[in-house]
Design a protein around this nucleic acid. Structure first.
Lengths: 171, 171
DNA sequence: GCGCTCTGTTTGACATGTCAAGCAGAATGT
DNA sequence: ACATTCTGCTTGACATGTCAAACAGAGCGC
């Protein structure tokens, strides 16, 4: 008794899926070519760069970009090797680690942000008219209202099952 | 002189990004819980199951689901271990490998497909009205028209840089 | 019928993410 | 104070994807 998708539904769903695949691919590619960053790098750098003092506690950062703490810890180690960020011990709490942008990290994300916006415009925003943008906002609003309530609010913390991948800060 | 995103543009873009993240997460989660399959497994199984004889050449399959041949080869090996598919040598061409569904693979994908459609309906399609679906189809059409032309048609083959993740066959 | 190149696939080394321990510092109860 | 538990982070083993190198069979050109 499965209710299969109608043609219209199927078109919308497959369109979304394909959009997702190709758009991500293109944006990722641009980011790597323009700035030598992965999406992951970008999320981390842009989020930390918006924080006061260009520094953020590891756990907070993980929550903000919806990663598991473990993933972030691994990734920060790698970014540290590349000289983009530093780990700093917090005086008030001996357990805590703070991620701090290096000068190189700051310079990198500043340059990357401009190019990234351009990429988003080129492949997405500028292709759509205001009605499209409004429709899209409405659609994601509806779906997200459903998902955010059905979904465990926090990733690796609580009983949450699976992986993440979040955009984090504005482009 | 960067043209930053306006508020409306930003809302639409972030909405899309967040939708992408949470919806994928949910669908992936359901698929794993309902059928014990990853998205990758599902793509492979559903595509092969639609092919005549429930078999498909490895290269063809890779192209169809937009994976690199190498990724597929690795993944098929893993699925083979789990008894979902088999590798078969093609008589006409000694180099070629053919991926064939086992009975278990067939049974699995049949059951999984039903549950997957239900999941897609629950978290996406059924939340939207016909106008939303039409708008979405229009939007992805516009963007894809742009991307598919700007994008190297084939993944790991030609000069193409990066990763993939494609839905493949219908839900 | 033999070397060359081309093609389809496999393989291996490495990058990145996941999950489950491990661990040290903070908080709490008595 | 000090044992116990909690918290925040790190680590290690493993899964999955990437890229480049290795291969073996197919298809030439001669």
């Amino acid at each position: 008794m499965t209710r299969w998708l109608t043609d219209d539904e199927m078109r919308a769903w497959l369109g979304y899926r394909r959009l997702r695949t190709l758009l991500d691919l293109q944006i990722t590619r641009d980011l790597a070519a323009d700035s030598g960053l992965s999406d992951a790098d970008y999320d981390v750098l842009s989020t930390v760069s918006d924080a006061p003092g260009r520094r953020m506690r590891l756990g907070e950062l993980a929550t903000a970009i919806r990663w598991s703490v473990s993933r972030l810890s691994h990734h920060v180690s790698r970014m540290q090797q590349r000289g983009l960020v530093t780990r700093d011990d917090c005086e008030s709490d001996g357990r805590s680690a703070t991620v701090v942008l290096t000068d190189a990290g700051w310079t990198t994300i500043q340059a990357a942000a401009k190019l990234h916006v351009a990429s988003v415009r080129r492949h997405f925003v500028d292709l759509l008219d205001p009605a499209d943008l409004a429709a899209l906002t409405k659609i994601s609003g509806k779906v997200l209202a459903h998902l955010e309530q059905a979904t465990p609010p926090d990733p690796a913390r609580r009983g949450t099952p699976r992986t993440q991948r979040e955009d984090a800060a504005g482009t």
